[in-house]
Write a protein that binds this DNA or RNA. Structure first.
Lengths: 101, 101
DNA sequence: TTTTATTGTAGCACTAAGTGCTATAAAAAC
DNA sequence: GTTTTTATAGCACTTAGTGCTACAATAAAA
Protein backbone atom coordinates (compact mmCIF):
# COMPACT_ATOMS: atom_id res chain seq x y z
CA UNK A 1 0.00 0.00 0.00
CA UNK A 2 1.73 3.12 -1.23
CA UNK A 3 0.74 6.09 0.86
CA UNK A 4 1.80 8.66 -1.71
CA UNK A 5 -0.57 7.17 -4.27
CA UNK A 6 -3.41 7.34 -1.79
CA UNK A 7 -2.50 10.93 -1.11
CA UNK A 8 -2.70 11.76 -4.78
CA UNK A 9 -6.07 10.07 -5.10
CA UNK A 10 -7.25 11.88 -2.02
CA UNK A 11 -6.22 15.36 -3.11
CA UNK A 12 -7.56 14.72 -6.60
CA UNK A 13 -10.91 13.81 -5.11
CA UNK A 14 -10.82 16.97 -3.02
CA UNK A 15 -10.16 19.03 -6.14
CA UNK A 16 -13.07 17.41 -7.93
CA UNK A 17 -15.27 18.18 -4.96
CA UNK A 18 -14.09 21.78 -4.83
CA UNK A 19 -14.84 22.10 -8.54
CA UNK A 20 -18.37 20.89 -7.89
CA UNK A 21 -17.89 17.75 -9.95
CA UNK A 22 -18.00 15.33 -7.04
CA UNK A 23 -20.62 15.44 -4.29
CA UNK A 24 -19.76 15.25 -0.61
CA UNK A 25 -20.95 11.69 -0.15
CA UNK A 26 -18.76 10.41 -2.93
CA UNK A 27 -15.80 12.39 -1.58
CA UNK A 28 -16.32 10.70 1.75
CA UNK A 29 -16.18 7.33 0.06
CA UNK A 30 -12.78 8.21 -1.34
CA UNK A 31 -11.65 9.49 2.02
CA UNK A 32 -12.56 6.20 3.61
CA UNK A 33 -10.52 4.34 1.01
CA UNK A 34 -7.55 6.57 1.79
CA UNK A 35 -7.74 6.04 5.54
CA UNK A 36 -4.42 5.02 7.02
CA UNK A 37 -4.42 1.30 7.82
CA UNK A 38 -4.95 0.62 11.50
CA UNK A 39 -1.95 -1.18 12.92
CA UNK A 40 -2.23 -4.02 15.37
CA UNK A 41 0.03 -3.97 18.38
CA UNK A 42 1.52 -6.70 20.50
CA UNK A 43 1.09 -6.63 24.25
CA UNK A 44 4.55 -5.14 24.77
CA UNK A 45 4.00 -2.58 22.02
CA UNK A 46 0.88 -1.36 23.77
CA UNK A 47 2.82 -1.06 26.97
CA UNK A 48 5.54 0.86 25.12
CA UNK A 49 3.01 3.31 23.75
CA UNK A 50 1.87 4.04 27.28
CA UNK A 51 5.27 4.15 28.98
CA UNK A 52 6.70 6.44 26.32
CA UNK A 53 3.96 8.88 27.18
CA UNK A 54 4.81 8.41 30.84
CA UNK A 55 1.35 7.76 32.17
CA UNK A 56 0.09 5.11 34.54
CA UNK A 57 -2.32 2.42 33.43
CA UNK A 58 -5.05 4.34 35.22
CA UNK A 59 -4.43 7.60 33.40
CA UNK A 60 -4.07 5.80 30.10
CA UNK A 61 -7.37 4.04 30.69
CA UNK A 62 -9.02 7.37 31.46
CA UNK A 63 -7.88 8.83 28.15
CA UNK A 64 -9.16 5.83 26.22
CA UNK A 65 -12.34 5.77 28.28
CA UNK A 66 -11.83 2.19 29.27
CA UNK A 67 -11.11 0.34 32.51
CA UNK A 68 -7.78 -0.26 34.16
CA UNK A 69 -8.50 -3.95 34.00
CA UNK A 70 -8.78 -3.77 30.23
CA UNK A 71 -5.51 -1.89 29.79
CA UNK A 72 -3.80 -4.43 32.01
CA UNK A 73 -5.08 -7.34 29.97
CA UNK A 74 -3.97 -5.67 26.75
CA UNK A 75 -0.46 -5.28 28.16
CA UNK A 76 -0.39 -8.82 29.53
CA UNK A 77 -1.63 -10.23 26.26
CA UNK A 78 -4.64 -11.83 27.93
CA UNK A 79 -7.08 -9.88 25.78
CA UNK A 80 -6.62 -8.05 22.50
CA UNK A 81 -8.09 -4.62 21.80
CA UNK A 82 -11.01 -4.61 19.41
CA UNK A 83 -11.47 -2.35 16.39
CA UNK A 84 -12.34 1.01 17.97
CA UNK A 85 -9.81 0.46 20.76
CA UNK A 86 -7.12 -0.22 18.19
CA UNK A 87 -8.10 2.95 16.40
CA UNK A 88 -7.59 4.93 19.58
CA UNK A 89 -4.25 3.27 20.23
CA UNK A 90 -3.16 4.18 16.71
CA UNK A 91 -4.21 7.77 17.23
CA UNK A 92 -2.27 8.01 20.47
CA UNK A 93 0.79 6.30 19.02
CA UNK A 94 0.90 8.59 16.00
CA UNK A 95 -0.50 11.86 17.27
CA UNK A 96 -0.01 11.76 21.00
CA UNK A 97 -2.43 11.81 23.89
CA UNK A 98 -3.67 15.32 23.23
CA UNK A 99 -5.80 14.29 20.28
CA UNK A 100 -8.07 12.57 22.79
CA UNK A 101 -8.49 15.67 24.93
CA UNK B 1 -18.92 20.11 36.17
CA UNK B 2 -17.70 23.59 35.27
CA UNK B 3 -15.41 23.44 32.30
CA UNK B 4 -13.84 26.84 32.91
CA UNK B 5 -12.66 25.75 36.35
CA UNK B 6 -11.10 22.65 34.88
CA UNK B 7 -9.42 24.82 32.29
CA UNK B 8 -7.91 27.01 34.98
CA UNK B 9 -6.64 23.98 36.88
CA UNK B 10 -5.24 22.58 33.71
CA UNK B 11 -3.37 25.67 32.62
CA UNK B 12 -2.10 26.21 36.16
CA UNK B 13 -0.70 22.70 36.16
CA UNK B 14 0.92 23.38 32.79
CA UNK B 15 2.55 26.49 34.19
CA UNK B 16 3.89 24.58 37.17
CA UNK B 17 5.30 22.00 34.82
CA UNK B 18 6.87 24.66 32.60
CA UNK B 19 8.44 26.19 35.70
CA UNK B 20 9.95 22.83 36.57
CA UNK B 21 7.94 22.53 39.76
CA UNK B 22 5.72 19.70 38.58
CA UNK B 23 7.01 16.61 36.84
CA UNK B 24 5.46 15.22 33.66
CA UNK B 25 3.80 12.26 35.33
CA UNK B 26 2.00 14.45 37.80
CA UNK B 27 0.98 16.83 35.06
CA UNK B 28 -0.55 13.89 33.24
CA UNK B 29 -2.55 13.03 36.31
CA UNK B 30 -4.01 16.52 36.29
CA UNK B 31 -4.68 16.29 32.59
CA UNK B 32 -6.63 13.09 33.11
CA UNK B 33 -8.75 14.77 35.76
CA UNK B 34 -9.50 17.59 33.34
CA UNK B 35 -10.52 15.30 30.52
CA UNK B 36 -13.86 16.28 29.03
CA UNK B 37 -16.56 13.89 30.22
CA UNK B 38 -17.46 11.34 27.59
CA UNK B 39 -21.09 11.73 26.64
CA UNK B 40 -23.37 8.79 26.06
CA UNK B 41 -25.57 8.86 23.01
CA UNK B 42 -28.94 7.36 22.28
CA UNK B 43 -29.41 5.26 19.17
CA UNK B 44 -30.92 8.14 17.25
CA UNK B 45 -28.20 10.52 18.40
CA UNK B 46 -25.58 8.19 17.00
CA UNK B 47 -27.44 8.08 13.74
CA UNK B 48 -27.62 11.88 13.75
CA UNK B 49 -23.88 12.17 14.23
CA UNK B 50 -23.38 10.02 11.16
CA UNK B 51 -26.04 11.54 8.92
CA UNK B 52 -24.91 15.08 9.72
CA UNK B 53 -21.50 14.11 8.39
CA UNK B 54 -23.23 12.61 5.37
CA UNK B 55 -21.54 9.25 5.33
CA UNK B 56 -22.99 5.78 4.92
CA UNK B 57 -22.89 3.25 7.72
CA UNK B 58 -20.08 1.53 5.86
CA UNK B 59 -17.89 4.61 5.62
CA UNK B 60 -18.64 5.53 9.21
CA UNK B 61 -17.67 2.04 10.32
CA UNK B 62 -14.41 2.33 8.38
CA UNK B 63 -13.47 5.54 10.18
CA UNK B 64 -14.20 4.00 13.57
CA UNK B 65 -12.48 0.79 12.57
CA UNK B 66 -15.51 -1.28 13.41
CA UNK B 67 -17.98 -3.40 11.46
CA UNK B 68 -21.09 -2.27 9.64
CA UNK B 69 -23.06 -4.67 11.78
CA UNK B 70 -21.91 -2.89 14.91
CA UNK B 71 -22.81 0.57 13.62
CA UNK B 72 -26.23 -0.74 12.64
CA UNK B 73 -26.86 -2.15 16.09
CA UNK B 74 -25.80 1.11 17.72
CA UNK B 75 -28.29 2.98 15.57
CA UNK B 76 -31.04 0.45 16.18
CA UNK B 77 -30.41 0.46 19.89
CA UNK B 78 -29.76 -3.27 19.94
CA UNK B 79 -26.28 -2.80 21.31
CA UNK B 80 -24.64 0.12 23.05
CA UNK B 81 -21.11 1.30 22.25
CA UNK B 82 -18.53 0.50 24.91
CA UNK B 83 -15.99 2.89 26.40
CA UNK B 84 -13.45 3.32 23.59
CA UNK B 85 -16.21 3.37 20.98
CA UNK B 86 -17.99 6.11 22.87
CA UNK B 87 -14.74 8.03 23.03
CA UNK B 88 -14.46 7.87 19.26
CA UNK B 89 -18.07 8.93 18.81
CA UNK B 90 -17.42 11.91 21.07
CA UNK B 91 -14.36 12.87 19.08
CA UNK B 92 -16.27 12.72 15.82
CA UNK B 93 -19.25 14.60 17.21
CA UNK B 94 -17.10 17.40 18.59
CA UNK B 95 -14.17 17.57 16.21
CA UNK B 96 -15.42 16.01 13.00
CA UNK B 97 -14.32 12.97 11.08
CA UNK B 98 -10.91 14.32 10.14
CA UNK B 99 -9.47 13.79 13.61
CA UNK B 100 -9.62 10.06 12.86
CA UNK B 101 -7.72 10.38 9.58
C1' DT C 1 -40.99 2.99 -15.78
C1' DT C 2 -38.67 -0.96 -14.92
C1' DT C 3 -34.52 -2.71 -13.50
C1' DT C 4 -30.32 -2.72 -10.92
C1' DA C 5 -27.39 -1.46 -7.24
C1' DT C 6 -26.71 0.66 -2.97
C1' DT C 7 -28.02 1.38 1.64
C1' DG C 8 -30.41 0.39 5.69
C1' DT C 9 -33.46 -2.71 8.81
C1' DA C 10 -34.24 -6.85 11.55
C1' DG C 11 -33.15 -10.96 13.88
C1' DC C 12 -30.29 -15.24 14.91
C1' DA C 13 -26.23 -17.22 16.91
C1' DC C 14 -21.53 -17.30 18.61
C1' DT C 15 -17.14 -15.73 20.41
C1' DA C 16 -14.23 -13.07 22.78
C1' DA C 17 -13.57 -8.49 24.62
C1' DG C 18 -14.75 -5.73 28.50
C1' DT C 19 -15.32 -5.40 33.17
C1' DG C 20 -15.09 -6.04 38.20
C1' DC C 21 -13.00 -8.21 41.94
C1' DT C 22 -9.41 -10.17 44.82
C1' DA C 23 -4.83 -11.15 46.29
C1' DT C 24 -0.09 -10.52 45.62
C1' DA C 25 4.23 -8.37 44.14
C1' DA C 26 6.96 -4.57 42.75
C1' DA C 27 8.12 0.24 42.75
C1' DA C 28 7.90 4.82 44.41
C1' DA C 29 7.15 8.17 47.88
C1' DC C 30 7.38 9.31 52.52
C1' DG D 1 11.41 1.03 57.38
C1' DT D 2 6.79 2.09 56.41
C1' DT D 3 3.20 3.51 53.59
C1' DT D 4 1.18 4.34 49.16
C1' DT D 5 0.97 3.82 44.49
C1' DT D 6 1.29 1.00 40.57
C1' DA D 7 1.37 -3.24 38.24
C1' DT D 8 0.73 -8.44 37.82
C1' DA D 9 -2.12 -12.61 37.83
C1' DG D 10 -6.15 -15.19 37.76
C1' DC D 11 -11.30 -16.01 38.43
C1' DA D 12 -15.98 -15.37 36.89
C1' DC D 13 -19.60 -13.03 34.41
C1' DT D 14 -21.96 -10.08 31.07
C1' DT D 15 -22.59 -8.14 26.95
C1' DA D 16 -20.56 -5.83 23.03
C1' DG D 17 -18.73 -7.08 18.65
C1' DT D 18 -19.14 -9.65 14.73
C1' DG D 19 -20.83 -12.38 10.82
C1' DC D 20 -24.59 -14.00 8.30
C1' DT D 21 -29.06 -14.10 6.36
C1' DA D 22 -33.26 -12.28 4.40
C1' DC D 23 -35.96 -8.38 3.41
C1' DA D 24 -37.28 -3.41 2.77
C1' DA D 25 -36.29 1.15 1.20
C1' DT D 26 -33.97 4.21 -1.42
C1' DA D 27 -31.20 5.84 -5.32
C1' DA D 28 -29.18 5.29 -9.75
C1' DA D 29 -29.16 3.60 -14.35
C1' DA D 30 -31.28 1.26 -18.32
Amino acid sequence: MNKSILDVIHSSAEDLHAAGVMDLATLREFDALCLPPVEKYTASQIKSIRTHIKVSQGVFAAYLNTSISTVQKWEQGTKKPNGPSLKLLNLVAKKGLDVLA
